[in-house]
């Protein structure tokens, strides 16, 4: 029983982490028709900046603030000064973001070295919660809570606000949105920044259990892409459900059939794609 509960919690919390990354990836794709291959880099940069901040200040909260601020700024600069120059040109954009992925990877290796590192958990989450015979690791519950809060917040932003309506209008028909007076360029920057923020937040809250290490950028990007493909490009709901699904599949796969590695994630993805080529909630 403890095994199943613990594994389920691990899977769900990993799923929430993937949701944070996939949500940004998917929103950016929806509005700008662009796959940001440097999205996983925001995760490790968030983790490393957070780690550096913790070493100096000892505060997890300050680490989260510093990491998200730095990475959001990086996202804004990338969008405004680089990607903006190649509107609707998929190949140049893909190459450009891939270039950033390589630069950030080398930069991180140079600044922070090649040893895998984990962020210390905030102290209040060091202990576990015990209910009868079952032990809940409290940090995992915290991660799930963060995922739920962010999910609700994003859903409200998208469905319940004028800004969200403008974003959806841009996703549906960017040219017509412009013709209605919506500054789609500015929205794109904002959405890109939001995506970078969420990925950096992922680096912070994932830091204590996934950790940061050379290659984590690519691994997390790969998983987030699987989530987006399963959930459907451009769909927030898809990112959430897909994240949970992939998190659980990955975790139970590794626990029950360690020799199969990523097969337990990719096989279901192939099946879902065969049945629904646009993913679970995608329209395109």
């Amino acid at each position: 029983m403890t095994f199943w509960v613990t594994q389920a919690l691990n899977g769900i919390s990993f799923g929430m982490l993937l949701f944070l990354l996939a949500a940004g990836l998917s929103l950016i794709y929806g509005l700008m028709r662009m796959l940001n291959l440097a999205h996983g880099s925001y995760y490790i940069l968030g983790g490393y900046v957070g780690l550096a901040t913790i070493k100096v200040t000892g505060s997890f909260v300050l680490a989260a603030l510093a990491a998200t601020a730095v990475v959001t700024l990086i996202g804004v600069v990338m969008e405004r000064f680089f990607l903006r120059r190649f509107p609707e040109q998929e190949l140049p954009q893909a190459l450009l973001t891939f270039g950033f992925l390589l630069i950030f990877a080398d930069l991180s290796l140079w600044l922070w070295g090649g040893t895998p590192q984990t962020l210390p958990k905030p102290e209040i989450f060091e202990r576990s919660i015990r209910m009868g015979t079952i032990v809940f690791p409290s940090y995992r519950l915290f991660v799930i809570g963060v995922g739920l809060v962010i999910g609700l917040g994003l859903w409200w932003l998208q469905e319940g606000t004028r800004l969200g309506a403008m974003i959806r209008a841009g996703v549906d028909d960017a040219e017509m949105a412009r013709g209605t007076g919506v500054n789609v360029g500015l929205l794109s920057t904002a959405v890109f920044a939001l995506g970078a923020f969420l990925a950096a937040l992922g680096g912070i809250i994932g830091g204590p259990f996934v950790g940061v290490y050379p290659g984590a950028d690519f691994e997390i990007l790969e998983m987030a892409l699987v989530v987006v493909i399963i959930g459907g490009l451009g769909s927030l709901k898809g990112a959430f459900v897909g994240g949970l699904l992939v998190g659980l599949l990955d975790n139970f796969g590794k626990a029950l059939f360690p020799e199969l590695a990523l097969f337990t994630v990719f096989a279901p993805m192939a099946i879902i794609l065969a049945i629904r080529p646009t993913g679970l909630f995608g329209v395109r």
Binding site: R162, A165, M166, R168, A169, V171, D172, A177, T180, G181, V182
Partner: peptide, 11 residues
């Protein structure tokens, strides 16, 4: 994906 009211709001 926008409701009728939302079309009028963003315009």
């Amino acid at each position: 994906s926008l409701g009728v009211g939302e079309h009028l709001e963003i315009g």
